[in-house]
Every structure is written in structure tokens, then in C-alpha cells.
Amino acid sequence: MLLVHIKKYYESTTGEVIPTDQYDALHISPVHIHKNKVSHKKAILTLGKEIVQHIRTHHNPYIEYHADFQSEQIATEH
């Protein structure tokens, strides 16, 4: 469920859509509790791979730190 939330958050903040064709083809979601552990593991790894591939393809692979908020540092990807 965490990766699904990460995907939705990323899409809402960037306006980009992460294509998840391989994940969607598995026809399994976090709420499918009747599916076995192996199927869920494959779905998690597939979704994670598609999210990372999208970010690597569309953004530079480095992280820059900004101290925009008082004493907090926030990691941002460019």
C-alpha cells in the first residue's frame, strides 16, 4: 500500500503520470488479501521497479538539499 501512496503522491505533486503497465497486468492490489504472499511480493517489486524507472528516466539522478524551512533540511530531486 505504501508504494501505491508514493506513486499517487508523486503524480499529484509533479503532474506526471507513472505508467505501471507491468504492475497492472498482474491484476493484484494491496487490498487483495486472498492472493498469496508470492503474488504480492512480485507485485510490490514490479511496482517499485516501474516507479524508480520513471523517476530515473525523467529526472537527474542526484539529490540536492535545500534549507528552505528554518532549521529543517529537505531532500529534493531535480
Rank of each mutant, 00 (worst) to 15 (best):
M1W: 06
L3S: 04
I6H: 03
I6Q: 06
I6C: 03
K7H: 03
K8L: 07
Y9E: 11
Y10A: 05
S12T: 04
S12F: 03
S12C: 04
S12R: 04
T13H: 03
T13G: 03
T13F: 02
T14P: 01
T14Y: 05
T14M: 03
G15M: 00
G15E: 03
V17R: 02
I18E: 00
P19R: 07
P19H: 08
T20Q: 07
T20I: 14
T20H: 08
D21K: 13
Q22T: 12
Q22Y: 10
Y23N: 01
D24T: 13
D24W: 00
L26C: 05
L26A: 04
I28P: 00
S29L: 07
S29I: 04
P30G: 07
P30V: 08
P30S: 09
H32K: 05
I33R: 14
I33V: 14
I33Y: 11
I33M: 10
K35L: 07
V38W: 05
S39H: 09
H40T: 06
H40V: 06
K41A: 14
K41C: 08
K42D: 09
K42T: 13
A43I: 08
I44E: 15
L45V: 09
L45G: 07
L45R: 12
L45K: 14
T46A: 06
L47P: 01
L47M: 10
G48E: 06
G48D: 06
K49P: 03
E50A: 04
I51W: 01
V52H: 02
V52G: 00
Q53W: 01
I55M: 04
R56D: 09
H58K: 15
H58Y: 06
N60M: 06
P61V: 06
P61I: 09
Y62L: 12
Y62A: 05
I63A: 14
I63W: 07
I63N: 04
E64M: 11
E64P: 02
Y65V: 15
H66K: 15
H66Q: 12
A67P: 02
A67T: 13
A67D: 14
D68T: 15
D68H: 09
F69L: 13
F69V: 15
F69A: 12
F69M: 05
F69T: 15
S71I: 07
S71C: 04
S71Q: 10
S71R: 06
E72N: 09
E72S: 10
E72W: 08
Q73R: 11
A75Q: 08
E77D: 00
E77G: 13
H78Y: 08
